[in-house]
């Protein structure tokens, strides 16, 4: 077992623990903080896969921006610690069914012979310039269009959430 493998297990187990903590905590703020930790460990997994750009984005965007937004919403809405509900049998059966299906699917995928994916075939590295350069060259038009999209979304949000009309 080399360092790489050890780190993989460390990150994976830590992620699972954090995942359980997200749903086990009764206080939503604690749940959100567990989710931040989970994202951080996931970034570790990306580093192991040598996807450094993805790892950075994972920390900056998910652990940073998205989770701050989550916390804002939780605090704004002032959600109290939830009361422990009784376990519903139907929900439990449904959850087991879905989980079973997922396990079965993963098993099926693992059984298949390894397929050369499109990403590998092109020898695409996931470095910063590999991701950013196409945005300014190949995908220039969609990026510009995204600017209009964000403008429309912003105007819409202001209009729909403004408290007093005029």
């Amino acid at each position: 077992m080399n360092v790489h493998d050890i780190l993989f297990w460390v990150f994976s187990i830590a992620m699972l623990v954090c995942g359980v903590m997200v749903i086990a905590h009764r206080n939503p703020v604690n749940s959100a903080m567990s989710l931040v930790l989970l994202f951080a460990f996931m970034a570790g997994l990306f580093v192991l896969l040598e996807a450094f750009f993805l790892a950075t984005i994972q920390v900056l965007v998910y652990a940073g921006a998205v989770m701050v937004l989550f916390l804002f919403v939780i605090m704004l809405l002032d959600i109290r610690a939830s009361v422990l509900k009784r376990l519903r049998w139907l929900g439990l059966v449904g959850a087991l069914l879905v989980s079973g299906l997922l396990v079965w699917e993963i098993q099926q995928v693992l059984r298949q012979p390894a397929v050369e994916s499109a990403v590998e075939a092109k020898g695409l590295a996931l470095g910063l310039s590999d991701v950013v350069k196409p945005l300014f060259t190949q995908y220039m038009l969609p990026v510009q269009l995204t600017a209009l999209l964000l403008l429309a979304a912003m105007v819409g949000v202001v209009l729909l959430s403004k408290r007093d009309l005029q």
Binding site: P142, L145, L148, L149, A152, A153, V155, G156, L160
Partner: peptide, 12 residues
């Protein structure tokens, strides 16, 4: 992207 631009305008 264009589809989303249209759809988001319609949401509002």
């Amino acid at each position: 992207v264009a589809l989303e631009l249209v759809t988001i305008c319609f949401f509002v």
